[in-house]
Amino acid sequence: MQPNDAETNAMIRVHDLSVVYRQEDRPVAALDRVSFELDRGDSLCIIGPSGCGKTTLMYVLAGLLAPTAGSVEVGGQDPRRGRAATSLILQDYGLLPWKRVWDNVALGLQLRHYPPDEVARRTRTVLETMGLWEFRRAFPAALSGGQRQRVAIARSLATAPDVLLMDEPFSALDALTRENMQDLVRQIWQHDGLTMVLVTHSIEEAVFLGRHILVMSPRPGRPVAFIDNPEMTMDAYRQHPVFHQRCSAVRQLFYEQNGHTRAQAG
């Protein structure tokens, strides 16, 4: 990933992206001239203070929100045109409480008009790989937080995406479950060759899952630092000294930004 660089292999291109919300005719700038590129099969973690526009950025990448200014390309096209191979996992899972696990996971396939036997086959496969087959008839409310998160991931993998967008997917999980899920996502990312963008509040998570880390300024969000993290593919990275050094480095950058936040809020 390089800021402002026209590379040919880029899966995600964001150029001078700004987003301004209108709230009762008062403009609220959420993102301010954000630019970056991310290669196919690469991973990017975004951290930044609360309210700096991270969710907004994910919405733009998923095509749910139009940029106010600037341009965004995912897989060479405008995400607003609806890109079937992009999957989004939202902050609080976005599972439908009224659908059983099976129906939640099958939904993406059904909405894209796969034939019923193909829906059944793919749903079964992904549920089995994620260890969820025995819960297929359960409603989300009857699952643990970790299981629910697995279902959300299963649902976004069922359509075989090549871009996976995750907005604080693990923030509601306890520490152990969280590490398990991080391991799972990293496995999937490596195995499936996905291009992955993940928003997180956890520096450790960013360093564990991001081959690149983008630190944002307080609102309106601007990129204030890009950190390369090539060692993240190592086995047992969490135990590695480099992991801890990188966490400290990111933490230092991050708190320089948080100082700004306090000054602005105070």
């Binding site: 998923a62 079937a84 999957s87 939202l90 609080d92 976005g94 909405l111």
Partner: peptide
């Protein structure tokens, strides 16, 4: 609205 958004991101039409 997040439920609406997440289903829309799965490719849902307005009727869906």
């Amino acid at each position: 609205s997040q439920l609406v958004d997440s289903v829309r991101s799965l490719g849902a039409s307005e009727w869906d």
